[in-house]
Design a protein around this nucleic acid. Structure first.
Lengths: 311, 311
DNA sequence: CTTTGGAAG
DNA sequence: CTTCGAAAG
C-alpha cells in the first residue's frame, strides 16, 4: 500500500461507513477533536528469550520516493539508527538516478537495488548491508510478478532476508485480483526458502492484519489494505509457519501504526495503519529480541521499523 | 515563447553554432565570465509627444503558471505597479482552479479568462481591468486557432486592447508551420480591428524581432523565437500599420530583454530575449508616453512590461 | 530549470 | 497530500 486515496477510505464517505473513524470527522460538526491516541515506542530490548544478546539489527522503511526522502534527511535518521541492514521500499528511482548521498554511503558497502522495468519512478526496493551477503536474488521467480522491482532476497549465514513491497490493491480494488495471485505465489516463494533456511521477511506488506492494526477498521473493510481477502492472505502466510514479530511481542498493543496518509493531517491525529512488518520463520523466534516501530522518524508517509535479533 | 529548451539554443551545441554566445560558455574553458551587460529601465515618462498626460497604464506579464506566480508574490508587485489594466499570459490554470488571491482582487472588478480547451494547465491568458470594457471577445475568430486560450480582446472607448500568447514554434521547430499560419491569421485579425478603431496589442509574441532583441542572435537563427520566418512575421505585422512601442522610443537600446530561460543562470547573466511587446496602431503613436521593461520583477521566467498612454 | 496535470499511493 | 515522470517551454 503506502497510501490510500482518501485516508481511512470511509472517512469521507467514499464507502458510506464511518463508524470507527470519529477523530477524522470531529470538528466539522462543531465538536472538538479528541486528543489522538498515540503510541510510544518503548525502549529497545536487546536480549532474546533464551538469553542471547541481539547481534543483528535490521531496519525497514517505505521511503515513498528515495530522492525526496534523501532531501528530507532520511539518511540522517538512518545514520543515527545505524542498523546492520537497511531495507527500503518504494524507492521510485532508477539505479542510475540514485543520489550520491546514498550510493556513496561508506557505512553500507554492499547495496542491492531493484526497480520497475516498465514504469520509471514506480515501486522499487533496496537492501543495504554492512557485511556482504552470501547471495542476493531479485524477484520471486515468477515472470508475471518480477517486473515491478518488488522483492530482493539476501542470504546470510543464519537466515534469508527478504524485503518486499507488496502490490497495492488500489482504489476501487482494481488490482485486488492480481494481489490475490501475488499473495499465493509470494507465500509459495517464502515457503520454498523456509524449507532451506529460516527467513526474515520485512517491508510494506500492504495489509493491516487485524482490527487492532488500523485506526478505522469498520470503515475500511472494502478498502485496499483491509479487505477480507488481503487479511486472509496474511493469515495464511502466518499459518505457513511464520510469525508477525511485533504482534508476537505486543499482542494487545493498539494505536501502533507505520503508515498515515498525507491527507487530512492523519499523522498528527494518529489515524494510521500498521502495514510494515518483520515476519519471521518460527525457527528464529527464540532469537527475537525486539520489533520496533520508529514512529518519530519523518520523511515519508511510512515510518521505519527495526528488528533486533540474536542469530 | 516563454522558454527555450537550451537557453540560447546554440549555446550547448544543439544547433551547432555558438558564435554569439560567449557569455554562456565562458568558465567552462577556464576564462572568467565577463560582467553581464545589464539594462536599467529608465524613469517612466508620463507625457506624450503632443504634450498630453498619460491616463492609461497597462501591464503585461507572462506569468509562466499563475498559481506558482501567485505563490511567488507576483500580485504584490502588481499592487505596487497598479496598472489600470493587467494582461497575463501562460496562466496555465482553469478558471475554476484560480487562487482566491486573484479572483477576489478588489482593485480589478472586471476579469476575463481564457484557457486551453484541450490540455488542462496549458497556455491561457487573462485581462483584469479597473473599469469595465465596452465589450470582450475571445480568440481571433478562427476555429483552428481558438482552442488554446491565446487571445482576449477588450474594447475600450478609444482603442481595442488585445492580449496574446503567440504559439511557440517549439524544439526542433516542430510547430513552425503552424506558427506561420497563425501569424498570417492573427495579422488579418488585427488589421480587421484596426480598420474599426486603433488597437494596443500586448503579450508574449514569442519572437525576438531583430538581432538587438536577444543576447545571442547568431546562435539562434535556427531556434524557435528567432527564425527568419518568425522575424518576418513580426516585420509584416509592423508593415500592416503597427509600431513596436519600445523600439520606437528606444531605437538603439540593447540588452533590454523580457525573457530569460531558467536554465544555466541565464537571468543573472542577462542572457535573454525581448519577446514581450506593446504593439500600437500608428494612430495611437501621438499618445505614446512610455513603454517600459520591468526587469526587476521576479516570479516568472518573463518580466512584466508596462505601457503609459494618453488616450 | 520550472510549471503543469496525471498516475499512483 | 505527496511522490514521480511527461510534456511543454
Amino acid at each position: 500500500m503506502s497510501k490510500r486515496s482518501k485516508a481511512e477510505g470511509a472517512v469521507d464517505g467514499e464507502n458510506g461507513e464511518n463508524g470507527a473513524a470519529p477523530e477524522a470527522k470531529k470538528g466539522k460538526k462543531g465538536k472538538e477533536p479528541e486528543a489522538p491516541i498515540l503510541y510510544e515506542d518503548p525502549p529497545d530490548k536487546l536480549t532474546s528469550k533464551d538469553g542471547r544478546d541481539a547481534n543483528m539489527k535490521i531496519t525497514s522503511w517505505n521511503v515513498d520516493g528515495l530522492r525526496a526522502w534523501v532531501k528530507k534527511k532520511g539518511l540522517d535518521w538512518v545514520r543515527e539508527e545505524a542498523p546492520d541492514v537497511l531495507c527500503l521500499q518504494e524507492t521510485k528511482c532508477a539505479e542510475k538516478a540514485l543520489p550520491a548521498d546514498i550510493t556513496s554511503m561508506p557505512e553500507y558497502p554492499h547495496k542491492y537495488w531493484a526497480g520497475s522495468e516498465e514504469k520509471e519512478g514506480y515501486s522499487g526496493v533496496a537492501i543495504l548491508c554492512k557485511t556482504e551477503p552470501i547471495k542476493v536474488t531479485y524477484g520471486i521467480g515468477k515472470e508475471e510478478h518480477d517486473k515491478e522491482g518488488r522483492v530482493i532476497t539476501a542470504e546470510f549465514p543464519a537466515f534469508f532476508l527478504v524485503t518486499a513491497y507488496v502490490p497495492n490493491a488500489s482504489r476501487g480494488l482494481v488490482r485486488l485480483d492480481y494481489r490475490k495471485t501475488w499473495d499465493v505465489d509470494f507465500r509459495a516463494y517464502l515457503s520454498g526458502l523456509d524449507a532451506q533456511k529460516p527467513l526474515v521477511l520485512c517491508g510494506d506488506l500492504n495489509v493491516a492484519h487485524q482490527e487492532i492494526d488500523l485506526k478505522n477498521p469498520k470503515g475500511n473493510k472494502k478498502n485496499a489494505g483491509f479487505t477480507p481477502e488481503e487479511r486472509q492472505g496474511f493469515t495464511e502466510l502466518l499459518e505457513a509457519g511464520f510469525v508477525d514479530s511485533f504482534r508476537e511481542l505486543y499482542p494487545e498493543q493498539g494505536f501502533a501504526y507505520t503508515f498515515w496518509t498525507y491527507m487530512m493531517n492523519a499523522r498528527s491525529k494518529n489515524v494510521g495503519w500498521r502495514l510494515d512488518y518483520f515476519v519471521l520463520s518460527k525457527a528464529l523466534l527464540p532469537g527475537l529480541c525486539d520489533s520496533k516501530i520508529r514512529n518519530t522518524a519523518m520523511g515519508s508517509d511510512h515510518c521505519p521499523i527495526t528488528l533486533h535479533l540474536a542469530v
